[in-house]
Design a protein around this nucleic acid. Structure first.
Lengths: 234, 234
DNA sequence: ATAATAGTGTCTATGAGACAGTATAGC
DNA sequence: GCTATACTGTCTCATAGACACTATTAT
């Protein structure tokens, strides 16, 4: 019974193209920490619909491309970056999320170090910029499509994951000081942490590199690196 | 630059249909507890590819249907159930996950009480059955498509979520005893728990209904119900 | 009384949070 | 010396885990 319908749908869409398919896109929330703020890569739209509003970078998924590949392609187009941390967030499918046509969007989140980012910026209003996340979240009516939802979902996800994974390290360079690391946690969580407790929490994850900070007018901090990548699922 | 390509892709797929789109399907992992085992609804395929292997219930997503709607439709077709707990899992996109054509699959997990399930079963080999999850997980080569991955991913997700959400209650009826509830946790987690500690953990979530078990050859247990649904994100 | 399962009290180890203290650079 | 920031020791409290104990039904 049900089985029959399934095969029928398969065959329909296979033999003839009279089965109307939605388009599939990938939208990427690229987050970074810049100037002590959590920021997202956003593009100001210069055409309808949602003209002049902020959109997340997105691409359509090619017929011979996986979602991960499409997401990487989108990130590279927008930031020039290649080797980055990335994970799938959620798939959005409201019928009219794009008023022009039916588009199902698989969202991704990517974390990058702002020092390495190369925004394709400056030439047109619509090129990519780094926008503080909290500005966007408090002006969701200025965001195109359902991208405010994606942003909200993504920010909540890293707030959770920063507590039990090592994603925070993706926002720093390979060598970092503990005050820097702590600042990353504080920016993501939106609250200040006790130094001593924070250090207890991360001490098993990191190791000293040997070098220390130089040229600061106070006690210099030691540099650390991540000891090893831990496997964490979900 | 990037912007141009995006608009172009939109227009191409909008005006003419020369942009080849993948198909989008929903595959659903329906879990239940039956006879003290965690079981999944599975369908034995009676056609190629993957003939005679176990597949999860799935449907194609209609052009005017959200993913949630498609998942609900699939669940209802297979189990007859309507009001159930369901959440999106992950979206799978390997190029050849379906050898016949390009299909992107959005997976869902659903939890239902086995007492209410009405499998459309018995008529054909390919109708739905309840299969112990651990049998499937230890014979992944008997599963069609990438459905073993979905199963693995889904089981891991509820193992995590059972600890900090109330999903376990979805597998029971409205009234339940604490030994029953504990058994649900133990079956999902795959280990036994200390009674006293377990009760401390859940005591704020539940309230007594007033009635107690009858006709058992030992001290009867009290019946409880879930106090209120808690909001938990992600 | 016995068997069988329901239900409780309490000790301990662990970890989060709070706070006070010491250390080391430039000036 | 002073200022500024790095870094550490320790107390308290909440929670998870382990285990021993008591309670109530049918037979």
């Amino acid at each position: 019974m049900k089985k029959r319908e399934e095969e029928k749908a398969y065959l329909e869409s296979y033999n003839e193209s009279d089965y109307v398919k939605p388009s599939v896109a990938v939208d990427i929330l690229v987050l970074t920490i810049d100037n002590n703020l959590l920021k997202a890569v956003a593009v100001r739209r210069d055409e309808m619909p949602f003209k002049d509003m902020w959109a997340l970078p997105g691409v359509f998924v090619g017929i011979n491309e996986t979602l991960d590949e499409a997401a990487l392609r989108g990130i590279k187009e927008e930031t020039g970056m290649d080797e980055i941390y990335m994970e799938q967030l959620y798939t959005w499918s409201d019928i009219n999320r794009d008023p022009r046509m039916r588009v199902i969007s698989v969202s991704y989140i990517a974390l990058i170090n702002s020092k390495q980012i190369q925004l394709k910026a400056g030439k047109r209003v619509s090129d990519a910029s780094l926008i503080p996340v909290y500005d966007l979240l408090s002006n969701t009516e200025e965001m195109a499509f359902d991208h405010a939802k994606i942003l909200q979902y993504g920010v909540e996800r890293i707030r959770n994951k920063v507590e039990y994974t090592q994603i925070a390290f993706e926002l720093l360079e390979e060598k970092f000081t503990l005050p820097e690391l702590q600042r990353v946690y504080e920016i993501i969580l939106g609250k200040s942490l006790y130094k001593a407790n924070f250090r207890k929490k991360v001490k098993d994850l990191i190791e000293e590199t040997g070098d220390i900070q130089a040229g600061v007018a106070n006690r210099p901090s030691k540099y650390y690196r991540l000891k090893e990548k831990m496997e964490v699922s979900l």
